[in-house]
């Protein structure tokens, strides 16, 4: 008897339907008829409209929303639980921006390690595999007992820089010491110089004093970070770079959260341009911020899904960007 057919099913939560559609177009697979909704009492439920028995299911949901990040999280777990109940063979959570990734350590007494909790909750809900992108700390992979594919936006960023900028007068800058490794790797691959901004941080989301290490005079500076939240760091970094004689400053980040008044800050800042991926929905912010530019990550996610489904190696994607 031949093995039963094992098809891909793509599902989307409500957090970032646009990205799901892009992935679905790239893979040429429609989104499955599974709909998450809320009752009036705000409990989440999901209507499963087609069979997923013995299928290889991918649930696309990103961590976003200042008011409803927890709704989307519950939604993802409800969907995965429903899929498990309906005998899906393998459930893969595709989470471009992993929620609660920054709460990954017990940095003060009685602080919750929420990233670990989320990892446990996702596994409890029935997730067998996780695809994510540029985890804030790659150690979060260790919080899971299931395989985690942490993809990198780096190849896409490299391509973007190569296409747009002349590498002769380029300096890659890390806005904090934590990102030095990421920035050094990009600078090596582009064969350009890199600089570092050291910041003394008193509290989260608050930046106090910054010191530039390296020379940026008359150069185009590219600030690279994994996420831009309130953008305080980026704006201050841009100030420092401009004060030190930079020609212009561009910021490239993977996850553009842009919470609270980040967009206004960016508009007023001395940043020439801010580039981020569409790991989170940004359509309204694009309209409000003329400096914002988007790199599409759907090809990399789609290719990762395709490779995972066919049992091919995903590590190719760490260094190469599919188009």
């Amino acid at each position: 008897m031949p093995a039963s057919q094992n098809n891909i099913k793509l599902l989307t939560g409500n957090s970032h339907v646009e990205l799901s559609h892009l992935i679905s177009e790239k893979l040429n697979i429609g989104l499955a008829n599974v709909t998450a909704f809320q009752y009036t009492n705000r409990e989440t439920a999901v209507i499963v409209g087609e069979s997923v028995r013995d299928e290889d299911v991918y649930v696309i949901q990103t961590g976003c929303g200042e008011q409803n990040i927890n709704d989307y999280l519950m939604e993802m777990m409800v969907i995965m639980n429903a899929l498990r109940t309906s005998s899906a063979r393998r459930i893969t959570a595709v989470i471009p921006n992993f929620p609660y990734a920054r709460q990954d350590k017990k940095d003060r007494s009685r602080a919750p390690i929420t990233a670990k909790l989320i990892a446990n909750l996702l596994q409890t809900a029935g997730c067998n595999h996780v695809i994510t992108m540029d985890l804030h700390a790659s150690q979060i992979q260790g919080f899971f007992r299931v395989p985690v594919d942490n993809l990198y936006a780096e190849p896409l960023v490299l391509r973007y820089i190569k296409e747009k900028y002349n590498k002769d007068d380029l300096v890659i800058v890390s806005p904090d010491a934590g990102g030095a490794k990421r920035v050094a790797s990009i600078a090596d691959k582009l064969d350009v110089r890199f600089a570092l901004i050291h910041k003394e941080r008193q509290r989260a989301n608050e930046v106090s004093r910054m010191v530039l290490v390296g020379d940026v005079k008359d150069n185009v500076c590219i600030l690279i970070d994994d996420m831009a939240d309130t953008c305080g760091t980026l704006c201050k970094a841009a100030d420092i770079l401009m004060d030190n004689g930079a020609q212009k400053v561009i910021a490239i980040v993977t996850h553009g959260i842009f919470s609270s008044n980040a967009i206004e800050k960016l508009n007023l800042s001395r940043l020439d341009k801010i580039v981020c991926t569409n790991s989170m929905p940004l359509a309204d912010k694009l309209q409000k911020c003329p400096k914002l530019e988007i790199i599409d990550i759907s090809p990399i996610l789609a290719e990762a899904i395709r490779r995972l489904h066919h049992g091919e190696s995903v590590s190719y994607l760490f260094n190469n960007a599919p188009s």
């Binding site: 409500n14 339907v17 009036t40 929303g65 409803n68 929905p281 309204d284 309209q287």
Partner: peptide
Amino acid sequence: FNLGVNSSSGIGAAGHILPKSF
């Protein structure tokens, strides 16, 4: 594809959250 507008803003009166997702 205009959903990004709705879901990313995320701010608003409580009543607006639900229809947004729908």
